[in-house]
């Protein structure tokens, strides 16, 4: 065997068997019926039935809101970190790394302990007669958005921290000397520099929320209708399993996400130039 072959064989094997072939087969299978024949029916089902349209709508909506909330808080958070002492900054970055990786089942369970039907928040609301807290359900759309912020905020901070650290205090001082005030400085200098990073971070937060299955499943089982949950219920081997339909839905998902990320990259590259 040539050394090039030796070099690339294990790499290609892992990527083909573990990733490329399953994705290619998934795309093809989206155009097959349960019997294996060619059909568009999976796609017409998805776009014509309310259930699937609702899944798409819910996913887009929850990801948009969670992405915006996550972005706003993480802009504030990343800015605040850069203002603190170097040592504190390093500790905070550990903390946010940790918070971001806590997502999924452990996060969902912690939130159930606080906001669940037998949780602390309900007890507080009952004793202190706080109506909105008593009515708040962690298993609802609002509850899911709250849950998502627990990993969207740290993720956003981790992405925005490095570019914000690049902004030098001297620039602000120089602008002040030249007669600019604070808001003018932020609008004309800081914002254009950070905008590509802000767009990039928003796209990542949005895509991350779109693909979130574990947290949502651990909180609501198969009860909340979203793209990941519907896909999960179609492939879990139960009675109403329909793998080709799941393949079509997953293909739509992957195509939309890939397009979004690519378009985002293009905008960002143009802005950077």
């Amino acid at each position: 065997m040539g050394s090039k072959v030796k070099l690339f064989f294990p790499f290609s094997l892992v990527m083909l068997v573990g990733l490329v072939l399953p994705v290619v087969v998934m795309i093809i299978a989206g155009f097959q019926g349960m019997d294996g024949g060619f059909t568009f029916s999976n796609y017409t089902t998805i776009f014509s039935q309310n259930y699937y349209r609702m899944a798409i709508f819910n996913s887009l909506w929850i990801s948009l809101i969670a992405g915006i909330i996550g972005l706003v808080i993480s802009i504030l958070g990343a800015w605040a970190i850069t203002q603190l002492a170097e040592r504190t900054q390093n500790i905070l970055i550990i903390l946010f790394n940790l918070a971001a990786s806590f997502a999924g089942i452990p996060l969902a369970f912690s939130l159930i302990i606080v906001f669940g039907n037998a949780g602390i928040a309900k007890a507080l609301a009952h004793t202190l007669h706080i109506g909105f807290l008593g009515g708040f359900s962690i298993y609802s759309l609002q509850g899911l958005i709250l849950a998502y912020t627990f990993f969207e905020v740290p993720l956003g901070i981790l992405f925005l921290y490095a570019p914000m650290k690049e902004i030098k205090k001297e620039w602000f001082e120089a602008a002040l000397v030249l007669g600019a005030n604070r808001s003018f400085f932020i609008k004309t200098i800081i914002l254009p520099i950070l905008l590509p990073n802000i767009i990039e971070t928003f796209i990542i937060l949005f895509a991350n929320a779109m693909g979130t299955y574990e947290t949502m499943y651990a909180l609501t089982g198969n009860n909340f209708i979203s793209i990941p949950i519907v896909i999960g219920s179609l492939i879990d081997g139960s009675l109403n399993a329909n793998v080709p339909l799941a393949c079509a839905l997953a293909t739509i998902f992957a195509a939309v996400m890939a397009m979004l990320v690519l378009v985002g990259n293009r905008i960002i590259n143009r802005k950077r130039k």
Partner: peptide
């Protein structure tokens, strides 16, 4: 780009279809 355009739930669909 990969982890965001092909999250686990999408990839596992392909796995179930191909190797199920």
């Amino acid at each position: 780009i990969l982890p965001y355009s092909i999250p686990g739930i999408v990839l596992v669909t392909g796995l179930v279809q191909l190797y199920g």
